[in-house]
Design a protein around this nucleic acid. Structure first.
Lengths: 118, 118, 118, 118
DNA sequence: GTGGTCTAGACCACG
DNA sequence: GTGGTCTAGACCACG
């Protein structure tokens, strides 16, 4: 029911990342209306203020826009979404390659494992 | 100079991960003596209490052992190290594959990028 | 299309200021008939209630008058307009001088920049 | 005693602007330590959360930095301060020139008034 | 009903 | 003691 959170990171940031991933994956579509702060707060079992803060952060990043009285929606701006997607992928890959090298894996070996895991 | 930390995660956990990575990568060798809490704390520019806590966590995980009088050293136990390495790699790969799928990347494409990035 | 508003201030106040500026600048002339609340609301993309409230405020300030049947018009009273103009200019200048001093600009320097910017 | 606030704008934003002005004017010097959130909140007669939010915004703008446990200080980075100063001055001047033109003042007249008011 | 702001106050991490 | 996060809940602007 309630979303699950990791104790070692602020909840609001985990919410930001969750929603960001939904936007970048297209699960939340460009321009789609987002549930109200109150509803999302109930869904996630967090305080409305916490949800508010998460959504505000998404606004700062340009992924979400607000219409004062009619709620929030995913940005219409493809460029912002694509940029965020590219940046996340970039970071993810570099991070991964660094980690695998560090653990002693070679390139070929890593690719093989990815193929299996895919 | 000082190690760099991310404000959004407990410092002691970030230290744990850093030292764990050094052990798993072999930068800190099996059985190698570890600097004193004091020295490490200075090196990292953190409070000795914080460093202490990090090392304790590494003991709990079995990666570090204590000799009352002669300080700490990396475990001699290959098995523990290998297990930790495997687990970390597992988690890392699954995480990565999930993320890339989510961002819309395919298996071949991902492997190509890894090759470039390696 | 729609007028643009700053999220950090009541919309009705921003409308008041916009129309006031149009009156003081003469863009809306002395005695000129003002569009209906309805039309203005559509033009500004705001709720009629909001526009209503803005016009009421302008009445309170004496810049706009109402004729029960024939709608609103800009006041005929030169004195009121001139007074408002003077007050706004006063406030604007004092504010500006304070700001520039505060930012470390001198009088001569400021005058030079104004000349360029004019 | 308590700082004075305008009802038509969020308090936290007014605090941001007040402190920003103190930094840009040099009243708060480069690298100077800033009072604790709690103390500032008492000084301003606002809730600590409100003050926290204001300081967080100043952090986002790069004007203030945090040391987790030892409090906040004005940034050491001249460039950031100078940039902010220039931007504020720019906006202020353009705004002012626009306003004065709008009110029917000429360039020479405006400069004369500034001289008197300085 | 929607988002935004604010207060009050608890609890945590780090020192 | 310092900042950070979170909850609970009030009240406001706009519709």
């Amino acid at each position: 029911m309630a979303w699950t959170f990791d104790n070692n990171k602020p909840i609001y940031l985990q919410i930001v990342e969750k929603i960001e991933r939904e936007i970048l994956s297209g699960k939340l579509e460009k321009g789609e209306k987002i549930s109200s702060v109150r509803d999302l707060a109930i869904e996630a079992s967090v305080n409305p203020n916490t949800m508010q803060r998460a959504l505000q952060e998404l606004e700062n990043r340009g992924l979400v826009t607000v219409q004062r009285t009619s709620g929030r929606q995913v940005t219409q701006d493809d460029e912002i979404i694509n940029l965020a997607r590219t940046q996340l992928a970039q970071a993810s890959i570099q991070n991964f390659v660094f980690e695998m090298k560090n653990l002693g894996f070679g390139c070929e070996q890593t690719k093989k494992i990815i193929e299996q895991e895919w």
